[in-house]
């Protein structure tokens, strides 16, 4: 599978496609089944957020290597040009979810990955980067 792979997110079907691309690359680096399941689930949550809250955007999925440890992993960057997240601390609070109750908030998703980085600007958009390393 090619890396990096850029997947546009403009429909519910694209959320499924993001999962499939992430699963393919996670299998390629021989991630354990549990870790594969975790990173694919995290990607599914974030892709849906990008579509529903961000008004669509892009997922960039790539294989990465940690120069310090030599471990390989899968990194996924979600970007959208939506309304942004007005209160990041609140969005990362355990159990918090915005009104529609569609997701579980970001805290659960963050637990499924090793690295989680969020940049958001009200009115400009959101960029969330996650990485899962092989063990």
């Amino acid at each position: 599978m090619t890396s990096p792979a850029e997947v546009p997110i403009t429909s519910n079907d694209d959320v499924v496609r993001v999962r499939q691309v992430v699963r393919g690359l996670a299998a390629e680096v021989k991630m354990s089944l549990v870790d594969q399941t975790k990173v694919v689930t995290a990607a599914s949550e974030l892709a849906r957020n990008t579509f529903v809250y961000g008004g669509g955007g892009t997922a960039t999925v790539e294989l990465v290597t940690n120069p310090a440890t030599g471990r390989t992993g899968v990194k996924i960057v979600f970007t959208d040009e939506g309304p942004g997240i007005p209160d990041v601390d609140l969005a990362l609070t355990e159990g918090w979810s915005s009104g529609s109750g569609l997701g579980l908030g970001l805290s659960g998703t963050r637990r499924l990955v090793d690295e989680f980085d969020l940049e958001t600007e009200p009115g400009t958009g959101t960029r969330i980067s996650v990485t899962k390393w092989t063990r």
């Binding site: 579980l104 659960g108 637990r111």
Partner: peptide, 10 residues
């Protein structure tokens, strides 16, 4: 693996 992930997700 699904059970483990669901619990971690909350």
């Amino acid at each position: 693996a699904v059970a483990i992930t669901l619990v971690e997700l909350g």
